[in-house]
């Protein structure tokens, strides 16, 4: 199935297509909506606006208002609607505009969407994809800047995927839609390649035009290195790669592991990498305590604490709400500066 119109083939192959993460995500959604009539998208401002963070650009024009639905600002009602439709065999993609808004509909998410399969003893499947924007860095304050993936990952019954690259954004979206479980799909505003927000040079990436699945639960070694393992997700992957490039000139060889999903967590990949480097830095834009950073460290400690040549270090949001003032926000976020100093710390 073709999802983009390619020019008629000429002598030379076209250069690799580079898309933003937002466009890649939309391409994945569109491909599945073409393939499967039970897929539909609903949420706030996902129709004519195309998603506040460009997660649905062009879908309304292409698939019509029966399958791309603007909802009232009633997250509980439309989140539950997605669950009920999924119970009846449809494959809804439901957007929570900001992950921070989970508070107004969490019962539908963790008590219903996530538990029905279990409570029914496997007799009822709930194939929902819940998409949501995460992350800070642009002074949106404490209620619009959180990542919160650790919260979703903590509660059983939901897969949690977090793409950092355009290629993974498309492949993980297709995998999420085809998955028979609820999948929380968290996209970082700062990685979407939005024209109106500071972006990293890595926000554009090559994306194969055909539909493909990126397996859920497989981490990716996005940079190989011998000296230290940086385990991270989302926008922090880009920062970690930037830091790795810089430190390479100082002779420090950093490996960057992009987890890509927290549930399931690719524990083998973590242990394998730390087993080679002996040094671990976990970078997490979510809150520090009781979260992803602790889980990654516990994974190594439980398997074989002797793998740690030095104590591991984590770079996360200290347990404080995200502040508004720019200087304060940049202090608590896992910036390249903080990642760099953490790597230097474990290198001694």
């Amino acid at each position: 199935m073709t999802v983009v119109e390619e020019p008629a083939s000429k002598a030379a192959p076209p250069p690799p297509r580079r898309l933003t993460m937002a466009k890649a995500m939309v391409e994945g959604i569109a491909a599945e909506m073409e393939r499967d009539p039970s897929v539909f998208y609903l949420g706030e401002d996902v129709g004519a606006y195309g998603g506040i963070f460009s997660s649905t650009t062009g879908l309304l024009e292409r698939f019509g208002p029966e399958r791309v639905l603007d909802t009232p600002i009633s997250e509980t009602a439309f989140m539950g609607l997605a669950t009920g439709a999924a119970v009846e065999g449809m494959r809804p993609i439901v957007e929570l505009m900001f992950a921070d808004f989970f508070g107004v509909c969490m019962d539908q998410i963790y008590n219903h969407m996530a538990k029905i399969h279990f409570e029914s003893g496997g007799n009822v499947k709930v194939p929902v994809v819940l998409t949501s924007a995460v992350g800070g860095g642009y002074s949106d304050g404490a209620q619009h800047s959180q990542c919160l993936w650790g919260t979703f990952a903590h509660l059983p019954g939901m897969k949690v995927v977090i793409p950092s690259t355009p290629a993974d954004a498309k492949g993980l979206m297709i995998s999420a839609i085809r998955d028979d479980n609820p999948v929380i799909y968290l996209f970082h505003k700062g990685a979407m390649g939005l024209a109106w927000m500071t972006k990293t040079r890595r926000a554009l990436g090559e994306v194969p035009p055909e539909p493909y699945e990126t397996p859920i639960g497989k981490a990716a070694v996005v940079r190989s290195g011998r000296d230290v393992t940086v385990v991270t997700v989302s926008l922090s992957v880009h920062y970690a790669l930037d830091v790795a490039d810089e430190l390479a000139t100082d002779g420090i060889d950093v490996e960057v592991l992009d987890l890509r999903s927290l549930v399931p967590l690719d524990r083998d990949a973590i242990v394998e990498s730390v087993g080679r480097t002996g040094r671990l830095v976990v970078v997490d834009e979510d809150y520090q305590s009781f979260g992803m950073s602790a889980e990654v460290m516990a994974t190594v400690a439980e398997r074989d604490p002797s793998l740690f040549a030095v104590p591991p270090v984590r770079v996360a949001v200290p347990d404080v709400p995200i502040p508004y003032a720019r200087a304060l926000e940049q202090t608590v976020l896992p910036t390249p500066e903080r990642i760099r100093s953490a790597v230097r710390q474990v290198m001694g």
Binding site: T76, A77, G80, T83, M90
Partner: peptide, 15 residues
């Protein structure tokens, strides 16, 4: 909280 899922079932039936 049983109400919102019923909406989704109704939506699926109509769809």
């Amino acid at each position: 909280e049983g109400l919102p899922p019923a909406l989704g079932q109704a939506f699926a039936f109509r769809q």
